[in-house]
Computed example of a mutant assay.
Amino acid sequence: MRTSKPITVTLGSQQKSLDTRLESGAYSSASEVLRAALRALDREDDAINEIMRQKIREALDDPRPDIDAETVFDRIEQLHAERGGVGGNDE
């Protein structure tokens, strides 16, 4: 029994990339190219998720005291003002 279903995809500017890969002989069908692309996208997502998990672990393990939100926003507004930006809530 078939576990996948045929789909129609409009590639636009990516069509040339697909055609080049097929012409090179590296892939024998558009389906192979798309499956490889999706596997690459899955690997990229996994890598980004791992980086984010690591950053979250580092933040949670950071022994420095927490900074309250008001202080953070005050610092952001100060930096923004120093760079010539428009001030906070006085619009």
Rank of each mutant, 00 (worst) to 15 (best):
T10N: 13
A47L: 03
T10H: 06
S29M: 07
A59C: 08
R64Q: 06
E82L: 13
Q54M: 03
S4L: 12
Y27W: 05
N89V: 11
R43C: 01
Q54T: 03
D74P: 00
E23C: 01
V86W: 03
A69C: 01
S17H: 09
D66C: 04
K55M: 08
K55R: 15
R57Q: 13
A81Q: 12
R2Y: 00
D46E: 14
A36V: 09
I51E: 11
H80R: 15
L11K: 00
A47P: 00
M1R: 09
I67Q: 07
R2P: 04
V33E: 05
A69V: 15
R43N: 02
Q78M: 05
L22W: 06
K16R: 11
L41F: 09
E91F: 02
H80K: 15
H80V: 15
D68C: 07
L79R: 14
G12D: 02
N89G: 11
L18Y: 14
D90A: 07
Q15H: 10
D45L: 14
K5W: 07
L18A: 04
E50S: 05
E44D: 06
P6T: 14
M52C: 10
G85V: 06
Y27A: 10
E50L: 01
A40N: 09
V9Y: 07
M52E: 05
N89C: 00
R53V: 02
D61N: 14
T71A: 01
E58I: 03
A69H: 08
A47M: 04
D68K: 07
E44S: 12
D45S: 09
E44R: 08
K55I: 09
A47K: 01
S17Q: 13
D90Q: 05
V9K: 04
V33N: 03
K5F: 11
L38N: 12
A59M: 14
S24I: 07
E58S: 13
L60A: 10
V33Q: 02
P65V: 13
Y27R: 03
V72N: 00
